[in-house]
Design a protein around this nucleic acid. Structure first.
Lengths: 101, 101
DNA sequence: TAGGTATTTAGGTAATTACCTAAATTCACC
DNA sequence: GGTGAATTTAGGTAATTACCTAAATACCTA
């Protein structure tokens, strides 16, 4: 785990928000948009972009940044890319800050 | 604790390094520079700047940023400003990432 | 009060980050 | 093979961050 890369990937309000939203998609995304949602896949790029009120390309890059830092997991299915949290990595980050930082 | 402010304050390699150095000053700073070191005060700005191999003003701003985010505690004594870690805040950050992020 | 050391503040430039739109790619389906 | 939806990549500008040097401030001590 590259601590600086991970921290940079969450040093932005929108990216922090996305992490929160993905913790409980049912609570944060409108129900009608999650018809094809499954916890094992996560939420697709355009739904997240809509929720963030930002352009799809910007959010696409943000999501890629967070999966590069390992905090998110991407799954491509047909033409959609779904993102979900990587809970293990998030706990690992917490531990790293607790013990090593 | 303003999570974004805290994260931004450690989203830089030098600032991360400083946190590490202050965890164990005896291990990271040359002995002769810590003659007046005390754990209750910490290490002064110019010693940290020298260790970081950066200008004093830059490091002064970095340290101020980290004390503003609560990760460091500053103590002014005569013409010196000493900085030490705020262990409680660091643990609080770890908890926040563990449970809330 | 003058001079010296430590620090902070100001002000500047270069690099990085934060977005956007347009274009390219991927993949379904007809 | 062509069209359409979702996504990614490219390429651009504005804002922020990363540094620096110079100047100002704070606080000793003679």
């Amino acid at each position: 785990m590259k601590i600086l890369e991970v921290i940079k990937s969450i040093s932005n309000q929108t990216r922090l928000d996305i992490l929160t939203w993905l913790k409980d998609p049912f609570a944060y995304f409108p129900e009608e948009e999650l018809t094809d949602y499954s916890p094992s896949l996560g939420v697709c790029v355009s739904d997240i972009a809509k929720k963030a009120k930002m352009s799809v390309p910007t959010v696409s890059v943000y999501l890629k940044m967070m999966s590069a830092s390992d905090l998110l997991v991407a799954t491509r299915k047909d033409q959609w890319t779904y993102y979900k949290r990587n809970e293990e990595a998030i706990q690992q980050l917490a531990e790293l800050i607790k013990n090593k930082l």
